[in-house]
Structures are given as C-alpha cells and as structure tokens.
Design a protein around this nucleic acid. Structure first.
Length: 269
DNA sequence: CTCTATGTTTAATT
DNA sequence: GAATTAAACATAGA
C-alpha cells in the first residue's frame, strides 16, 4: 500500500496504536528477509519505549525513548495492523510486536506478501532517511526550488518525479495523476518545462495527495487492483475516456513502469 | 502460461 | 565517469 497517502494512513494507525510511552514487550520475527540488519538486532529493541511515530516520503520512523529508531518501508505490499495479543498468525505476517501501555496489551503486525518492504532497527537515522527530499505534506512544496532542480534534469518529467530526493513520497500513481492534473506530458523533459508548468505540477501533486487521502475514509487503504473501485483519474484506465476531454487514455512504459496519460490534454513531449 | 503490479537497489550497457 | 536500461527481489491475481 505504498505511496505517500497510504504511508500517511499507516502512520496515523501506528501513532494511535503506539502512543508515547508504549512498551515493546516482545518482538517475533516470522520472516527475517524483511528485517535489517538482522532479526537479532530487531529483537534487541525489546523493552524499549515509543516516543514518536513519524513519516517522511514513503518511510516511517518510530523514535524510541532511548534515541534508538525503528524504520519501516512498505515496499509494494507492506502494511501495519493491530490485533489482539492472542490473535493467530496471519497469512503474510512477517513481524509481530507485543506491546503494552497502561496495562493494555496488543499486537502490532507488519504484514507483507511480496516482501519488498523492510523493518529496520537502527541507532541513528539511516542513509535512506537522510537522503529524502522535500515532503509535500510535512514541508510543503517550494515552487521556485522545485523549478531550479528540474532545470538540471534531462530525463522525462515522469521519471524525475519518482526521484525520492526531489519530492519524497511521490510514486508511480502520484506522478501519473499529478501530470494529468497539470496537463503536462509525462514524456516532457524536465529541463524544458515552463515556470507555469512547474507550478501546475506542484499543485497537481498536492491536489492528487489530498484527493487520495480524502478517499481513504475507511480503515483499509485503497488498493486499485484489490476489488474496490479505481479512485484515480487516469491511472489504470487504459482506453477509458479522459475525465476532461473524453479522449481514450493511453498507456506507455517510462522508466520501466506503466504510465497512463491523456494524449490530448497532455499533448507534446 | 503470460502479463502486470502503489518500490528500490544493483549490475550491465551505452 | 555519467547516464540509461534491465534485472533482481517474491508473490498474487487477472
């Protein structure tokens, strides 16, 4: 469930389940492949107390009272869940934290089918965390700064938007939706964008984020291909009419990823 | 069986 | 050396 809006939803859940002062009583690693640097290093956090739960881009950071940290990246299919402490192991459960606050016990699970995600124990901020660029929700987007950085990039704007050191948290769907909102072709070279287009893209990113968060009403995140209706404007809508001009939506591959856009509204290159 | 999938890193090629 | 591209990771569902 992994772009900025979904990770933000995960942060809200964890913040509620792990309020300041929550103790990590025991940690059970079901599959060590998602744990770094090792299962033992993660278990060493047993007994620690939660101080805060934060998000930057697609990364989650749980800061503990003693200064140590727990990082989480959801990869493609990761999610966090809370269950009763005696609940049976779930199908794709990879790590289980038995937690306690004020005498109340619960289990907080990291669940991940494809296991592209990670749960990391660290003493300080990781390189991945420190490299992250501006987070649209945490920091807001400075249009002039964004324009200055895009001016140096020759690649297609859609590929550049996926660079986490630029705008942290923008993934394949957000990039696609933002460019449609901005009426900019995903193939357009970043350095050739006009100031007005950069401004439109910044607004498109913010609007797309808020639109997805607004669609999250319920507890479960919006998996496009997981039964529910597709909440997006053009993502996953090949050959469907563009919501603005009715031209059939096209699908191309950019940077190895499926890219949807309206050949009419987002004309040019 | 084939194709695609909300991500990131790394090896190979240009 | 820089930039671009493909592959790899592991699994599910259409």
């Amino acid at each position: 469930m992994p772009e900025l809006p979904e990770v933000e939803l995960a942060r809200k859940g964890l913040a509620k389940w792990l309020p300041r002062g929550t103790k990590l009583r025991s940690i059970h690693v079901q599959d060590a492949r998602v744990v770094k640097p090792s299962a033992k290093a993660l278990r060493d956090l047993e007994g620690a107390e939660v101080k805060s739960v934060e998000r930057r881009g697609k990364w989650l950071r749980i800061v503990l009272r003693d200064g140590r940290r727990l990082f989480s990246h959801l990869g493609m299919t990761g999610e966090w869940a809370r269950v009763k402490s005696d609940a049976p192991t779930e199908r794709f459960e990879r790590v289980r934290f038995e937690v306690e606050k004020g005498g109340t016990k619960n289990s907080v699970l990291y669940v991940d089918a494809r296991m592209f995600g990670h749960v990391i124990a660290a003493k300080e901020d990781t390189a991945s965390w420190k490299k992250l660029g501006t987070d649209p929700l945490v920091d807001g987007i400075d249009v002039d700064a964004l324009a200055a950085r895009l001016a140096k990039r020759k690649k297609a704007i859609k590929e550049v938007l996926l660079d986490q050191s630029l705008l942290a948290g923008v993934g394949n769907i957000l990039a696609i939706e933002s460019l449609w909102r901005a009426k900019v072709s995903p193939k357009k070279r970043a350095s050739t964008l006009t100031p007005a287009q950069v401004k439109a893209i910044a607004k498109g990113v913010m609007d797309a984020i808020h639109a997805t968060i607004a669609a999250q009403e319920g507890e479960r995140a919006s998996y496009v291909n997981a039964g529910g209706p597709n909440p997006f404007k053009v993502y996953g809508r090949k050959n469907e009419p563009c919501p603005r001009c009715k031209t059939p939506i096209a699908r191309i591959v950019l940077g190895g990823r499926g890219t949807y856009f309206c050949p009419h509204c987002q004309a040019g290159k």
